[in-house]
């Protein structure tokens, strides 16, 4: 053995491994499963690890999907991310513009201003965009709650749902530090 042979081995090893490394990184990233195994929520109060699979599987706590995913039980949207309705930052606000929900189609002149909608369509109270969910929905229509229709922000929704179930079952964390890790 001489030094230059060692040197050659090292260079060849490095080149091969480098290529292997690139291939592994490019072609085999760790897949995110469709149904989350565990979820890590990051927020100001410190991160929270939620064992999604363990909560939902029979070998775990055996909770049915719809106990948590509580909307439209019969269609796919029932598994929508909570954050799509319960916004993380602030409670869901009613869209300011008709266009946030409607797209204009062939019936409509392209530059129609929002106010102009009222010229042809019979509008709600005063022809304005609605300000609360209740202007279109009866509170009971959604969830049959009969409560204020202001949507919980996501952290509130989580706190309410996670903690109340833990309390009901007398199992699972209730104290802040049992969920939140700084």
């Amino acid at each position: 053995m001489n030094v230059s042979k060692d040197f050659k081995i090292a260079v060849i090893m490095a080149v091969i491994l480098f290529l292997v490394g690139i291939v592994c990184y490019a072609a085999f990233p760790v897949k995110t499963p469709e149904k989350p195994l565990r979820l890590m929520f990051k927020c100001k109060a410190g991160q929270v690890l939620f064992t999604h699979k363990k909560h939902a599987s029979d070998s775990g706590y055996g909770i049915s999907c719809t106990d948590c995913h509580h909307h439209n039980e019969d269609d796919e949207t029932s598994l929508m991310s909570c954050g799509e309705c319960h916004f993380a930052e602030e409670p869901m606000a009613v869209p300011k513009s008709c266009m946030e929900c409607h797209e204009l189609d062939e019936n409509h002149h392209e530059a129609d201003s929002e106010k102009a909608c009222a010229d042809c369509h019979q509008m709600g109270e005063g022809g304005k965009t609605p300000e609360t969910c209740n202007e279109c929905h009866e509170p009971e229509d959604i969830e049959g709650q009969g409560k204020s229709m202001k949507l919980h922000a996501r952290p509130d929704a989580f706190h309410s749902q996670c903690i109340s179930c833990h309390k009901d079952n007398d199992a699972g964390p209730v104290k802040c530090s049992e969920c939140h890790v700084m």
Binding site: I9, G21, Y25
Partner: peptide
């Protein structure tokens, strides 16, 4: 991937440093 990338780049860094400081290559 992590292992391969780590070993190979460690060798490259040392080789580059050997060249910059014009010493005999030590990666062997």
């Amino acid at each position: 991937g992590v292992i391969a990338l780590s070993v190979s780049t460690a060798i490259f860094w040392e080789l580059i440093m050997n060249k910059i400081t014009s010493r005999t290559a030590t990666i062997g």
